[in-house]
Structures are given as structure tokens and as C-alpha cells.
Design a protein around this nucleic acid. Structure first.
Length: 659
RNA sequence: GCUGACGUAGCUCAACUGGCAGAGCACCUGAUUUGUAAUCAGGCGGUUGCGAGUUCGAUUCUCGCCGUCAGCUCCA
């Protein structure tokens, strides 16, 4: 609540007590009146849900809460101040550097500078040392509110700041913050002084467009991270290491899953046999799943006449990201960027009755999109990929049921891979087509279905596509990162453009609703994500090689070969390693490939009809498990059939840290 | 696409300011017959991403192209 100027503000403290303070009181004074210890610990305060620092005069009343280091919201304040500290250091060492923006971001902060020469890693080390010095100097962050003329004078040498200043409305408070030698046009909030910024590190430098506009100049951006404790900083750096260790590009090479080849072209994936096994298992699993869920499989061509994409509108909206046209007998053809037009044509191959609906067409459809060279990234961002695409054509009345079925399908699918997920409902954007009534009805339908199954969700207001609202599923991987997952989109546009119809019970034509949906999205991106999710140690059903049979000596080749043959007959993917190498060497190699199981055959096992089983996931400290061959095959076969996740096996030990 | 860095054997990486391109692993051959994460020896392997230029001489310097990486921008 914004109180009239000059009146008193009523503050409600967390314990329910209230205080009346004059407008313009500094939060610092309020906090001090609560306790001196609290003032020492205070980073900032939250008033009526707004974070502000201790030296910004109170302009409103409401709930009043002191933020200490324990509060996640204080972290943003720290990081924003760290950005100022960075600018302080840079300005000391590079007085001519012009300053841009320096906000807090997810795991740290950055500051943009306009300089003649790009920064080098050496520069970064110097800046960081200078930051530590400035932190020790314990400069207080001092806030001042100035008028426009004063501000223009302060930033006369900083054109980027002047540009920002010019955008501020006349009714807005212009505040500047000073820490020691550095002054910045800034809304705040900030920590009390620079000595609060202790646990930080400059990460890397990169360039960024001013205001994020690729037509404006590029600035030099320095990224850093800052935390309230060494432990948190170390944990963050450790998370980065962990992410690097799981990088699908490195593991993809080490595990021989895929490659790209300059001669083939950037962003085009070559699936090696071991990677193809994973993809094929996923496709087979999903194919069975969707057939059970009432889908029909279709196939459509990879190259289609450009006229089709004129009808669909893709050409007009996405020409820049489509592969170029090729001319065939005077007509232009293009690699398809989407599968929908093909599925629509199949729908339109017959006249449809309401009795036929819903119709659900599914295809593992390979599409090609021109992505700018700078955005390509391993398997995650490519120019050719296979979508597990499907389109549901239904009556408006069937939308609820169909969306419900999709939620079931998504849940069944994601559980198998061990991904928790969140759901986001994206609603009508400004440039939406179709009537607001239809949109509202569709959004209500989506929300209703989510509510029916008590599925929690966030709303991304205005985040829908112009042609319809959508549900986005975000996967959470093994180290807590979010990935784009399944999407379900309602489409009011394509049925209109293509003139889709069905004959209703009233014997009149009606327009069906179209649902687009993908589960994994793209096989390339999904498998890339799985590599990182599992850190290359796939669950048995996906493992390229499930079992490696290793006889200890040459004399045991025969019994080992017969065990291998039995495993193969049992449907397991296995190999026999009877090379004249030491046992240790062969185990090391199988471990390097993260082979889930090794069956080692010595004299004792050959005589007893057993194997000494070694499990990759148990790591270095493990005792071989001596079990009968039948049991081995039963156990592994069952593990494959149940698609057991690593760590969910009966009697499974802790996963090895060196996984 | 833009900015910066980079591209050397299948992989990971060396080679001071321009002066005969090297190592480990992998691979091949031979020896070793191994009890749970790399046995020993020998050998093969390169138009230094591609193409121009400067130079007596280019992995090294310059330009163009291709690709990779970190960001930015973009992602139906």
C-alpha cells in the first residue's frame, strides 16, 4: 500500500507487532530500534513485499521484514553490490571504461563495459584482486537522490548511463549510489558496505549487445559469482565442475555415442551404434506407449513443396530459419521444418465425421531448421533433429479429455526416465489470433484439467503462441537443472488456414481443434540431456552394452563364450572380451565405457556354473558377487524389463561418486 | 549472424621470439595367462582444418573460408 506523502507509515513486523514511523524514515533506524545485533546482521529489508536497502527512505508501510544472509532474497542484493564492486575495480584500473548495466543474475552478477580493447583473462585476475582490495577498504554504499541536471553532470562521461537517464520519467526518483571512488546511476538496493562482499569470483568475460539489441554496439561483459560463505561459493564451483564432468559432448565422445563431422555440416548429428541403441530403445518404448494410448503412426516426406508452407504460414513467419528451397521441375521444395502440415494433409485425405474424432497421428519426424552458427551446441541445439511429434484432431468438447490423456502420457513417460517436472500454463499473448472468448475457453479447459488431477502449475501470462495457449513441462535433472520437456499446444490457426472440417451430428461442417504435442521433443536434445542426467551411466534398458563377459585366462574362453551365448539368447546386449590382456586392463576398459555389468569367469566359476559379477554403479570398492549363470540372466533381464533406474534397484548400494 | 578465444596423430595435449612436428593413450605385431580400474617390448600413425599471401624458410605472421568453445542475439 502506498501511503499519501508525508503521512506516517505503519509497519507490521513478523511477530505481528506494529510500528508507526514518519514517512522518509530510514529502515536502518527502524532495524536499530529493534536491536543492535539485528542491525549488524541486516543486509536489507523487505517492505510490503519489496526489497530495499537500509538507507532508502521508507515510502510505504506494510509488512516489514529484515533480510539477513540466511534469506535467499539477500543474495540478489549482495550480487548487485558485487557488480558495483567490480565496476569500482575496473574504473580504478581502466579509468576510460564506460559503464553499462550491472545486475544480479541467477547465480551471480555481471557488469557491462564499453572499452576499446576487449578484456583478457589476465585483466580479470587483476580486477578480482582490485575488488578484494576495495572490499577491504570497507566503502559504505551511499545513496543520494538527485535531480536530472545533477545526474547528467555526474554521468557526463558515460553515454550509456545518460541514455538510461533520459528514459526515466519525470515522476521517478533518480538515485545514485557511491562506494568509495565509484558512483553509479542505480535504483539499488545495496548491502551496507563493500566489506560484506567476501566470497566471490570473476568467472569469464564475453561480449554482449548494449540493451540486448544486436543492432547496437557490443560491450564487454564480465561475469562473476558471489555468495555469503566460502562453503556456498565452493559448492557452486563444485556444481560447475559436476556439470562439466557430465557434459554430453565430452561423454558422447568418450562413450562413442555420436559425432559431428565438418564434411557433413555443423549441427548435424551422426549417431554411432552405441548412441543409436539408446535412441532406438527410447523410440521403441515410446512407440509401444503411444499405441497403447490410442495413437496411429504415420510417415510423411522430409522434403515438401514450398506451397504447403505458404498455406501453413511457416514460410511467411519463419523463412529465415528454414533451409533454402530446391527447384524441381520449376517448383520449389524445402526440407520440412515441422511435421504438422503433413499430418493435416493426411487428415484431409478423407472427409471426416465427428464419429471419427479424436484422430491422433504420431510420427518420429525428422525436421530441419536453419539455426545461426553461433547457437549450435552439441546435441542440444542442432540443425536437423527428429521430433516425437503428434497431432490430435478433436471437437472442442473433446479438448478436456484429450488434454487429460496427454497429462497421463507425459507422466508415464517422464517417470520412466526419473525426471521430476513442473508445469507451466502459457496464456493469451498480445498478438493472439482468434476471439478472446475462444482463448478464454481453451485456457479454462487447460486449467480445469490440471486442477482435476491436482497438478500444481505456474502461469506464464501472455506466454502462449499467437495461435493458441500451451502447457510446458520443465524437467529437473539429477543435478537440479531445468530442461525444456514435453509441450502441449492448442492451435486455432492451422485448422483455419487449412480449412479443416468434420461433419457434426447436425450434418453441418465444423472446425476441429488441433493439439500439437511432443514428449521428448527432439531425440537429439533428449538423449543429450539424458547423457548429462545419468552422467553417462545409463539405466540397464538404455545401456549400449549391458554385460561384458570376461574370462580370466585363455583356457576359460569356451565356458565364457557359452555364458555369453546364453545372455545373448536371453536378449541382453553383451560382448565377450577374451583378448590376451590382463584382467585389470579389460575391467578398466569396460569401466571406462560405464558398462553396467561385468561377468568374470575364473576356474572356480567355470566349475561351479557361476560368474563373479561386477557392477559399474558400485564403483571401486566392491566385492564381486558370485551368482549362478541362470540368476545372472534372470536378474539382468528383469532389470531391463522393469526399466529400473539406477539407484532404485533392490539392495542397490550408494552410487559411486566417481560415476 | 556478432564479439573474443581456439583448430597439431583416432583421443588428450606439447613444440622459446618463423628454422628437420613430439609425448601419453588408442591401434598393429610379439611376448606375457593374468582373480576385479591400465603387463612389457617393438611398430604404424601428420600436406599442423581448407585456400591464398608475406618470407630463403610458415604449425608459428597476414587475409578469406570451414569448424569448435564462451557469451550475446535467436529458438515455430
Amino acid at each position: 500500500m502506498i501511503d499519501p506523502p508525508n503521512s506516517d507509515h505503519e509497519l507490521t513486523l513478523p511477530d505481528g507487532s506494529t510500528r508507526l514511523v514518519p514517512a522518509g524514515t530510514l529502515p536502518r533506524d527502524v532495524v536499530a530500534s529493534i536491536g543492535a545485533g539485528l542491525l549488524r546482521a541486516a543486509i536489507a529489508v523487505e517492505v510490503d513485499g519489496q526489497v530495499q536497502d537500509l538507507i532508502t527512505p521508507l515510502r510505504r508501510g506494510g509488512t516489514f521484514r529484515v533480510l539477513t544472509e540466511k534469506d535467499p532474497k539477500a543474495l540478489d542484493v549482495l550480487r548487485h553490490s558485487a557488480a558495483h564492486l567490480l565496476a569500482t575495480a575496473v574504473r580504478r584500473l581502466r579509468p576510460r571504461a564506460k559503464i553499462g548495466f550491472g545486475p544480479a543474475i541467477d547465480e551471480g552478477f555481471y557488469y557491462d563495459f564499453e572499452v576499446e580493447e576487449p578484456f583478457t583473462p589476465d585483466d580479470l585476475a587483476q580486477f578480482e584482486a582490485e575488488m578484494r582490495k576495495a572490499a577491504q577498504e570497507k566503502f559504505p554504499f551511499v545513496r543520494a537522490e538527485v535531480n536530472r541536471a545533477q545526474a547528467e553532470k555526474l554521468f557526463v562521461d558515460d553515454p550509456l548511463k545518460l541514455e538510461r537517464l533520459a528514459e526515466l520519467g519525470d515522476d521517478e526518483v533518480i538515485s545514485v549510489y557511491t562506494d568509495g571512488p565509484f558512483v553509479d546511476l542505480c535504483r539499488g538496493p545495496h548491502v551496507p558496505d563493500t566489506s560484506r562482499i567476501k566470497h566471490f569470483k570473476l568467472m569469464h568475460t564475453a561480449s554482449a549487445y548494449w540493451r540486448g539489441d544486436e543492432h547496437r554496439q557490443q560491450l564487454q561483459r564480465i561475469y562473476g559469482t558471489a555468495w555469503f560463505s566460502t562453503a556456498e561459493l565452493d559448492a557452486y564451483l563444485h556444481r560447475l565442475e559436476e556439470a562439466k564432468r557430465r557434459d554430453h559432448r565430452t561423454l558422447g565422445k568418450e562413450l562413442d555415442l555420436y559425432s559431428v563431422d565438418q564434411r557433413v555440416g555443423a549441427g548435424l548429428i551422426l549417431w554411432h551404434p552405441r548412441g543409436a541403441v539408446i535412441r532406438n530403445e527410447i523410440e521403441t518404448f515410446e512407440r509401444d506407449l503411444i499405441l497403447r494410448h490410442g495413437y496411429e503412426l504415420v510417415y510423411t516426406p522430409h522434403v515438401m513443396s514450398e506451397r504447403l508452407f505458404e498455406i501453413s504460414g511457416h514460410l511467411e513467419n519463419f523463412r529465415e530459419s528454414m533451409f533454402g528451397a530446391m527447384e524441381v521441375e520449376g517448383a520449389a521444395y524445402r526440407p520440412k521444418p515441422m511435421n504438422c502440415p503433413g499430418h493435416i494433409c493426411i487428415y484431409q485425405a478423407h472427409q471426416r465425421s465427428y464419429r471419427d474424432l479424436p484422430i491422433r497421428y504420431a510420427e518420429f519426424g525428422t525436421v530441419y531448421r536453419y539455426e545461426r552458427s553461433g547457437v549450435l551446441h552439441g546435441m542440444l541445439r542442432v540443425r536437423g533433429f527428429t521430433q516425437d511429434d503428434a497431432h490430435v484432431f478433436c471437437t472442442p468438447e473433446q479438448v478436456d479429455v484429450e488434454v487429460g490423456r496427454l497429462l497421463d502420457l507425459v507422466d508415464e513417460m517422464l517417470r520412466v526416465f526419473g525426471y521430476p517436472y513442473t508445469v507451466e500454463l502459457s496464456t493469451r499473448p498480445a498478438n493472439a489470433m482468434g476471439s478472446p472468448e475462444v482463448w478464454a475457453a481453451a485456457e479454462r479447459a487447460l486449467a480445469r484439467v490440471l486442477a482435476q488431477r491436482a497438478q500444481a502449475y505456474d502461469i506464464d501470462a501472455g506466454g502462449g503462441a499467437f495461435y493458441g495457449p500451451k502447457l510446458d513441462f520443465k524437467l529437473i535433472d539429477a543435478i537440479g537443472r531445468k530442461w525444456q520437456g514435453p509441450t502441449v499446444q492448442l492451435d486455432f490457426n492451422l485448422p483455419e488456414r487449412f480449412g479443416l472440417e468434420y461433419i457434426g451430428a447436425d450434418n453441418a461442417p465444423h472446425r476441429p481443434v488441433m493439439l500439437h504435442r511432443v514428449l521428448v521433443g527432439s531425440m537429439e536434445r533428449f538423449v543429450g540431456g539424458l547423457i548429462e542426467h545419468y552422467a553417462g551411466a545409463f539405466p540397464l534398458w538404455l545401456a549400449p552394452e549391458q554385460l561384458r563377459v570376461i574370462p580370466i585366462t585363455d583356457e576359460l574362453r569356451e565356458p565364457a563364450a557359452s555364458i555369453a551365448a546364453r545372455a545373448k539368447a536371453g536378449g541382453l546386449r553383451m560382448s565377450l572380451d577374451d583378448r590376451a590382456q590382463t584382467l585389470n586392463y579389460r575391467i578398466a576398459e569396460a569401466e571406462r565405457l560405464k558398462t553396467p555389468y561385468m561377468a568374470i569367469i575364473g576356474k572356480r566359476e567355470a566349475v561351479a556354473g557361476t560368474v563373479a559379477l561386477r557392477e559399474h554403479r558400485l564403483g571401486r570398492e566392491q566385492k564381486p558377487q558370485v551368482i549362478p549363470v541362470d540368476e545372472l540372466i534372470d536378474r539382468l533381464t528383469r532389470e531391463v524389463q522393469t526399466r529400473a533406474l539406477p539407484g532404485t534397484l533392490a539392495g542397490a548400494g550408494q552410487r559411486d561418486a566417481a560415476d
